[in-house]
Simulated scan of single mutants.
Amino acid sequence: MASLASVLGLFVLILSIFIATSAGNFYQDFGITWGDGRAKILNNGELLTLSLDKASGSGFQSNNEYLFGKIDMQLKLVPGNSAGTVTAYYLSSKGSNWDEIDFEFLGNLSGDPYILHTNVFSQGKGNREQQFYLWFDPTADFHTYSILWNPQRIVFSVDGTPIREFKNKESMGVPFPKNQPMRIYSSLWNADDWATRGGLVKTDWSQAPFTASYRNFNANACVWSSGSSSCSSNSASSSASGNNAWLSEELDSTSQQRLQWVQKNYMIYNYCSDTKRFPQGLPTECNMS
């Protein structure tokens, strides 16, 4: 029979591991930036909710800035008639030539699907929208929305399934976000001038307040502070050892197949197919495999 001391030692070890893995929470990682009390951190920092009513929406941002990372967040979107509302979850830098990586969830009439809107800005240039329906009800439960951002590519994923990849094509003259650290932002706001059927369906304020919920944030990322990155200069060796494997992560054949499945069955808009929007020719990255 194990001694009492060894049992206690094992318990302390397990407890310390648990504390290490659960230390990150919304109190520690984020700050509420606007909303006059409509954003709330609950359950000892394990849950964050944003609310929108006719007077105001609400939002938060990360305390840290990141220069590359693998970011996960679980969201449960506004249920019922969410027409006119937008829940935005994105990375962004500051300044007139900002970089940005966007998830935006466009609300809809009860029973109709949400539209998941994605975009990538580099040096202030966007117009790279792709839009999708989801293969589940995003209001019924939490689902994981992830951004992989490394020097080679940006990958948007939902519950581990990639839905979009934006590759670094700087060699072809296409700007890529790689020099500006970005914070994580999220907001819930009224956009009924465009969000639902181009603004035809307005927000039904009798359904307010509208609420979106967040949990299980995780950032395996390079934190930017005082002009330097937390990722060591020998990141190649640490990447090879697996500590920062995401820095060189790419889609394997299975992930490529899942990406193609989503784009074939659930993509509803792709800027790379919109010749009306780009009559002078599609953007350079659209003409590359």
Rank of each mutant, 00 (worst) to 15 (best):
M1Q: 07
S6W: 09
V12R: 15
I14T: 09
T21S: 11
S22D: 02
S22Q: 15
G24I: 10
N25A: 02
N25R: 01
F30Q: 00
G31T: 09
G37P: 08
K40N: 10
K40E: 14
N43E: 13
N44Y: 15
L47I: 15
L48S: 01
T49G: 11
D53K: 07
Y66W: 07
L67N: 07
F68V: 00
S82L: 04
T87H: 05
Y90A: 02
S92H: 05
S93C: 10
N97Y: 04
W98A: 11
W98R: 14
F103L: 12
F105D: 06
S110Y: 09
H117F: 10
T118Y: 05
T118A: 09
N119Q: 07
N119H: 14
F121I: 12
D137V: 07
F142N: 12
H143M: 02
T144P: 14
L148W: 15
W149A: 01
N150T: 06
I154V: 01
F156A: 04
G160K: 08
E165W: 07
N168C: 08
M172Q: 15
K178F: 05
S187K: 04
N190V: 11
D193H: 14
T196Q: 08
G199L: 14
D204C: 00
D204W: 02
S206T: 01
A212P: 10
N218A: 14
N220I: 03
C222F: 01
G227E: 14
S229C: 10
S238H: 13
A240R: 08
S241M: 07
G242V: 13
W246G: 04
S248W: 15
E249L: 07
D252Q: 08
Q263G: 04
Y269H: 00
D274G: 06
R277N: 11
G281M: 02
G281T: 02
E285G: 06
S289I: 05
